[in-house]
Computed example of a mutant assay.
Amino acid sequence: MTTETWLKTGIDLAWKFVAVYWLWHAWGNKATLRTEGWLTQSLLYWAPLVVAFVLLGPGEWFGHSWLREGIVPHVVPVFAVALLLVVAGATLACWSRHLLGRNWSSVVQVKREHELVESGPYRWIRHPIYTGLLLMFAGSALDVGDVRGILAVGIVLVSFGWKLRAEERMMQATFGDRYLRYRQRTAALIPGVW
C-alpha cells in the first residue's frame, strides 16, 4: 500500500468513526420541548449536507466537468495535511458531542431540563461540533483537490451559518442573560474570526 493510499484510508476511517460515534450516542437523549419544523430542517440542514457529500464523492461522478478542475496538487504532503485536518475535526466534533451528552440533537431543539455546556471547547467556541465538521469537510476538500471541494465546504458553511443562528435564537430564548454573557465571551465557530 502506498503512502497516498494510507492517508486516504485514514481520511475515510475518520469519517466512518464519526458516523458510528454519532449513531451510537444518538440514543437516550432528553425529551424535546421545542424544535424547528421538518421542512426547515430538510431544506436548510440535511439537503445541503447530502449535496456536499455527493460533491466530495468519487470524481468519476462528475466526468470532465468544471467541478473536476484541479486546484490543489495531488501529492503526499497535501494528503497528509488533509488527513490532519480531518482527524483534528473528528476529534473536536466527537469531544464536543460527548460533552453535550443527552442535550445533543441533530436539529435545532431545546430539550427538557436543557443545560448550557460551557466546558471543554465550549469555553471558547459556542458551536465546536460545527467547527469540527467544517475542518473535516475542509480536509476532505483538500484531499479531493478539485473545485467541487471548495463548493462543498461553502455549502456546508452556509448551512451551518443558518443553523447556528437558529440555535442561538433558541438558546437566547431559553437561557436569557446567561446565554448573552456566554455569547459575548466566546466565538461562534473560530476564535478571533467568527
Rank of each mutant, 00 (worst) to 15 (best):
W22M: 14
W104E: 01
F53W: 09
E36H: 14
I125Q: 03
L13Q: 08
I155W: 04
V50Q: 05
N103F: 05
A187W: 09
L99S: 07
R126K: 09
V156P: 01
L84D: 00
N103G: 04
W24N: 09
W15E: 04
K16P: 00
A152D: 01
L44I: 10
V158K: 07
L133G: 04
Q184C: 07
T32Q: 08
V110P: 00
W38R: 14
P121G: 07
A26P: 00
Y21G: 02
W24Y: 15
G161E: 05
R183I: 01
F175R: 00
H64Q: 14
H25G: 11
D12P: 00
L39A: 13
L134Q: 07
E115M: 11
V107Q: 12
M171T: 03
G154L: 02
T91A: 13
T9V: 15
S159C: 11
I71N: 08
Q184T: 10
V86C: 01
A138V: 10
A14W: 03
S119G: 13
V50H: 05
Y122W: 08
V144I: 10
V193K: 05
W6P: 00
L189V: 13
Y179T: 04
T2H: 12
P48M: 03
G161P: 00
S105M: 05
A19Y: 13
M171R: 01
L49R: 11
Y179G: 02
L44M: 14
W38N: 12
V193N: 04
L116I: 08
R148F: 02
A90W: 01
L116R: 07
I150L: 15
W27M: 09
L49Y: 11
